[in-house]
Design a protein around this nucleic acid. Structure first.
Lengths: 415, 415
DNA sequence: TCGACATACTTCAAGACCTAAAATAAATCA
DNA sequence: TGATTTATTTTAGGTCTTGAAGTATGTCGA
């Protein structure tokens, strides 16, 4: 499924299932989110879906219309019988507010600007170099990206309700502090604060695994699921988890380090310095260091190149190359099986930009996962692969911003 | 820490930290739970702790006193300055209601009857045989236990607000259906319903790992923690998890099968039929089957006997026996490390009746866990061992019943 | 064409719930 | 003794939501 299909797959954006856990959300916000999630929704349907009185919806909808967040629209479709007074569809006013999502990576920075229904109005990318830099340098690097984005969309900073930023590493989402990142020279860098002062906007930061997971929750296959896991295999192995329609960030904000769960006592050496991590059997560097041995390719050609070479060799029938992918696939199935045993999500999405090394994601691997798990109730975990375009992260970052903007703008009465 | 110490360790019972996630809980219930958790609490302190107005507490407390759930008591201690009007302590009326907790196991069934502050008023145990039985037979087995319990405590069925039942196997807590259990011949057995019709009480069922976890949350070391994991090593390896002061039961009610996470590709054979499960390196049968080989002991002597023998041999300096425990300990540390990496709980409690094979729980094992985990923020996970008496499970089952009874009795105004 | 019906939406009085502030109570301190 | 401090109670009022009655707007069938 490509980017466009994902966007057109279902109307609206954001999680489709309501979050029953948090009953404290004001009805105002619940109504808005229901309409946004379904694209359009009639007052009566909304009242039934949220189990609130029709009178409440009337009042709240009137308020939201006055405030410019909702509007009445023509709606062709009508389900059920055609008797009775026709419902009036409500829809989110697309340009009621706008947000920006930024992704910071080691090869390319990207940013998108979307309206309040998640449609991309502008996108900008810019190559980046791989070396570590200070926060100050990073801000200098990203600043023109945002300026350009605003320029293309014809907006100014004051039009932006919130900015979401994704970066790999360990991020405290509450504070916007990047505790560690392969892209930064500093530890405990106040990245959120730095961008907030730069842009004069509320800024929210999260790590790339969570960002991809948010992308699935808001725009992808996870929208209609209340619980699912997302696993990404890139430079490392990342994981995100949605429980009860909400991103689970671990008990203390860390956790979900699937890449560093141990799958072998005294196993392969991981870049974290320990042995037997799942990542040490799956990540780019794990494959390429074996490629060097198996194919006699020097690693000085760069990790990316030799991974491509390895894949091509395997496709061409090179047994040694194929064996490397096969072993990685077996460890991946083991890692996924452990996720199933511990979290029992109904769905695991293998997501990310590089879902193309299909030896890793072959049916054999998937059926191996089921062989390695107990599923007594005959409801085995579904496993899907989802190859996004390069804008996944930036798009996911907008979800972070949309959540925050909705809270601050819609969550309070008469702003 | 033994049973008595655990009960006396802190006043009150139940989680000490409030559950901020669920704001929908009525203030009435919040006030009651705050008082119960702290043993005694003044109105003013309660208002401050819950961030509600003093006026609300006055009204709610008056209601709860009228309804017989709270009472004013003399309280000697007074923190802070001694100026101003002295606070009046509130306490839960201990005999406002009573609950029963039952544990069903393969060796002995046990049951306790507690009052509304979790004090044990009566306890009964009864040996059981190891063979599988039908639900009907099990009910017949347990019925006299409950009758005896009521008799000892001088209560009748109508005095009991709720009954909690713990049983090993896979249990759907919502429905009371035991999907599979080593003790039952049937699958999908409606155990909850069976006991509900028998006793005419609301009945709640959960598996033994969750029950032990509830025991820690309500009466043990987990009371003051909002997030922690409990790992038990008995016949199998079980795990329970508390997130945000609430028992996490996995996305679909299953999950947390730590014993069947894979720690070795094509590893040791597990009783579940798969290979490489953690349990296959740790559980009783995993040790004893090696014992048979190492010591020339026949397994016909029974698993428990030869495990005792093995432990004695190791203590006496038998290297082969010691090596068996050593390897098991290494795998345990690996399993715990994976729990830390994925969930990042601040605390793991190794809990259960048999925390005495100290080779397994030596400091070496614990420091190995830290070697196998990344802890960037310099906040490594604390690991505690907690050896309960044989009544853990029955006590934990009362927590299940106390939760339910509190909801139904206190949660609604003027019952 | 028209009334019966069905469904959607609006209005509005009433109630639940909670709070802020004033009033009252009960102690210590000087 | 009176000022001060803290706890608790009282009370008026605000916010939010509902339930029921009323209104609007369509289809269906004679």
């Amino acid at each position: 499924m490509n980017e466009v299909e994902a966007q057109a797959a279902a109307p609206g954006c954001g999680p489709i299932l309501p979050d029953h856990n948090d009953q404290s959300r004001s009805l105002r916000k619940q109504v808005f989110e229901h309409v946004r999630a379904h694209g359009t929704a009639a007052r009566a349907d909304t009242a039934r879906a949220l189990s609130i009185s029709a009178g409440s919806v009337t009042g709240i909808a009137a308020e939201l219309i006055t405030d410019g967040f909702l509007q009445e629209v023509e709606d062709v479709a009508r389900q059920g019988t055609s008797r009775g007074r026709p419902p009036v569809a409500l829809a989110v006013v697309a340009d009621s507010f706008h947000v920006i999502g930024v992704n910071i990576s080691d090869r390319v920075h990207s940013a998108v600007l979307t309206d309040s229904v998640g449609r991309i109005l502008a996108e900008v990318t810019r190559p980046a170099d791989q070396q570590r830099r200070s926060v100050a340098e990073l801000v200098t690097e990203v600043e023109p990206l945002i300026a350009q984005l605003l320029d293309v969309a014809g907006k100014t900073e004051s039009d932006i309700a919130a900015i979401g930023i994704g970066i790999s590493g360990m991020v405290d989402n509450n504070t916007g502090v990047v505790e560690w990142s392969p892209l930064l020279t500093e530890t405990n860098a106040e990245l959120g604060a730095a961008f907030a002062t730069l842009t004069n906007c509320p800024v929210f930061v999260d790590n790339d695994a969570n960002i991809v997971t948010l992308a699935e929750l808001w725009f992808g296959d996870g929208r209609a699921k209340s619980d699912f896991a997302v696993v990404t295999v890139e430079h490392g192995v990342g994981m995100g988890l949605v429980l009860n329609n909400r991103l689970f960030r671990g008990a203390r904000g860390m956790g979900l380090e699937l890449g560093h769960t141990k799958v072998q006592l005294d196993g392969a050496l991981c870049r974290c310095g320990q042995r037997g991590c799942l990542e040490a059997y799956l990540a780019d560097y794990a494959l390429t260091r074996e490629a060097a041995t198996a194919l006699g390719v020097t690693t000085s050609q760069g990790a990316n190149v030799s991974l491509e070479v390895l894949f091509a060799e395997a496709k061409a029938g090179n047994r040694a190359a194929k064996a490397i992918f096969d072993r990685a696939a077996r460890y991946l199935s083991l890692g996924l099986a452990n996720v199933v045993q511990l979290f029992d999500p109904g769905l695991i999405i293998l997501s990310g930009e590089r879902m193309r090394y299909d030896y890793l994601y072959a049916d054999d691997m998937l059926s191996e996962v089921h062989k390695l798990t107990l599923h007594p109730g005959n409801n085995p975990c579904e496993i899907a692969t989802h190859a996004w375009g390069g804008l996944v992260w930036a798009k996911g970052a907008t979800a972070l911003a949309l959540t925050a903007a909705t809270d601050s703008l819609v969550g309070v009465s008469t702003p």
